[in-house]
Amino acid sequence: MSKPEVPLTDAEVRRIGRIIETLEASSFDYLQLELGDLRVTIAREGVVIPGALAPVTATAPATPPAPATPAPTDPAPARAAGAATTPGATAPAPEPGLVDIVSPMIGRFYSQPEPGAAPYVTVGAPVEADTTVCLVEAMKMFNAVPAGMAGTIAQVCAQDATLVEYGQVLFRVRPA
């Protein structure tokens, strides 16, 4: 829940996009950049960055560690390195054996039934096929999303109150 309240400006998003393109064309594997308060790490797929955060699997719900695209909560157009065209591209890479719960529709993701309430599920929570794991809202219509399988929540991949696309990965479940 601790996404810093520093929405990127469109100009910043464009600058980051250019940096990514430059990196792609170069022979470097990764690039770390600090611009005032903004810290960006951009890396090729599969590259391990010395001293960087490990992929988030245990702390939830959390922002994934700086992938090649700006945070999914940013409402600004954020097209970078082709990643924005793949729903769920910003979620951390899945562990083998985990099953995705994807959004059945485009809308706003809510992890809890109402503000201040406990989330429907957190990492480690057991779920049945009909357990509600979150709400997705479009035009004031709240749609409960069921887990669709029995197991334990292994990852929470979407941030509360942000836009999720059709087909975007919301949770990953370790099947029972």
Binding site: A76, P77, A78, R79, A84, T85, P87, M105, I106, G107, R108, E137, A138, M139, M141, L163, E165, Y166, G167, Q168
Partner: peptide, 24 residues
């Protein structure tokens, strides 16, 4: 486009014809 969002499956009735999906 500067950004693309996926609004639904291929069938237009479930994507391009959904007012709620477009507004979301």
């Amino acid at each position: 486009a500067d950004r693309t969002v996926c609004i639904g499956p291929p069938a237009s009735a479930l994507s391009y014809l959904r007012v709620d999906a477009l507004l979301a």
